[in-house]
Structure formats: structure tokens, C-alpha cells
Amino acid sequence: MPVLSIENLSYAYPNAETPALNDVSLSVNKGEFVVICGPTGAGKTTFCRCILGLIPHFFGGDMSGKVIVLDTDTRDIQPSRLAAKVGLVFQNPEDQLIAMSVEEELAFGLENLGLPRDEIKKRIDESLNLVNIVELRDRPPSELSSGQQQKVAIAAVLAMNPEILVLDEPTSMIDPKSALDITQFLNKLNKERGVTVIVAEHRLENLVSFADKIVVINKGCIVQTGSPREVFASDNLLEIGVAIPRIIQLASRLKKAGIKIDNLPLTVEEAFSILRRAL
């Protein structure tokens, strides 16, 4: 059951010389964990905005093709209406937070939805617990580290109970430990709660072992789609500017040199077993 269906999507920002997206098509099923990768400027952020309906409604511009989210065409619905079912977490942790306390931040989206007060309270409690930031409840977001801020942003979006969670380079501006926490959390969210996760990312190392599907974008076009092992078997990704995790690069090189590598390793554990067998 596709929760997201993109058909021949092309888009150019207002006054832009070149299109940001060129005839892109993609289908995402319920409960999938999709990673979108590609160099800066490839169109990852634009892609995320299209899923939320921010393109075309918020940004204007020239859009053709279709984006169907949960059986709704994004052109027929305002982004604020889609926001109840699809959440978006932005790259810059601080700039997406608007309230004076974490509690208020989580309440914001729920207030917008017009939910009754006790429901809001319940969801705030749940979300703080889910993301493991209960102790941050009364803190002003401006006092938090960027990693903590990003967790707050995620909690604020999850409080709205979206079916699909879209994240646009959520870890590129935060410290590695928080990045790891968040990555592992996304996996838990996806596997235990069935939330469809779509992440645009550069740091692929700890992420790819969780992904069902990798989508490689370059210059507005989808260059490749497939399972992690399928996608990373191709040679040209590094040239495009996709940071293939180093243990995978190592395994590929060894395979080409004739070493018996059964499979491309997605985790350190796998890499170790594979090498042990090969040596």
C-alpha cells in the first residue's frame, strides 16, 4: 500500500534558471524506511518540501506531475491540513523552534490542530517519553545544545502523530552522539511503531543498516533506487558525491581484488564476519 506516490514530478523555483527536480517518480509503502542521498543542491530539500505540500503552496513556482500523499493530491490540499498526517523536521535545529519552553513547543502543533487541552497534555507527556527528553520539559530551547534541540523538534512533530515522518538532513548540524541517538531512535520508531520514515542525509554510516530503500538524487533526477546493498554496489556514487560508508567501500575494493566477499556489510558486525570468513 503506497503511502506516498510521486509521478513524473518536475519543479522549478520562481525565477530559477534550472529546474530543481526533473521527472522524478517514486513510490513508498507503509512502514518503509527510505533514505534519500545525494550531493548538496541535488534536490533533497526540494523533494522533502514537495511531500509536505510546501511546494507548490508555500513556495509557488512551476510544478508538474503528481504527488499523492495518503491518497491525497498535494495540490488539492493546504500544507497545514497535511501536517496532521505528515511531519517534517528541518536541518537547522534552532530555527525551527518557536516557543519559550519545550512543553510549549510540543503544544504548538497540537494547539493549531484545535485538540482539547487534556488530549494535548497526554500527547506532550507521551512524546517527551518517546524521545526520552522528559527532563527537558521546562527548559527554554535556546539554552539547549543543538542535539537536544533537534530531539525537541522531533518530539514536537511526533506529538501530532503523523503516519509519515520526513526529515531533511536532521543530523548535519549536530554533534555525532546526538546524531547517533536520533538515528537509532528513528529506527525504533519505524520498526516498533510502523511510522513510515523518509530521511534525506549525508551521513550514511549508521543509517543504512536500517533502510529498506535508498534513493540517490543528483541534479534533480533520481539516479538510483534499491536496497542498500544493491545501490552501494555501483561504482559511480562517490563521483556523484555520495559518501558511501567506508566499510562498504573497503568491502567493494576487496571484492574487486579477488577476495571472497559474500555480501556488502552494512554494520561493523557484518563486516567482521565477512572478513573472517574470507581470510
Binding site: A83, I98, G114
Partner: peptide, 14 residues
């Protein structure tokens, strides 16, 4: 960015 974030959290829903 804030304006985008607010839209994405249903600002203006009703």
C-alpha cells in the same frame, strides 16, 4: 525557516 516550520506544524489549520 520558522515560517516553513510553522506551516509544517499545521499553523492555520483552522
Amino acid at each position: 525557516t520558522m515560517a516553513e516550520a510553522m506551516e509544517a506544524r499545521a499553523f492555520g489549520y483552522q
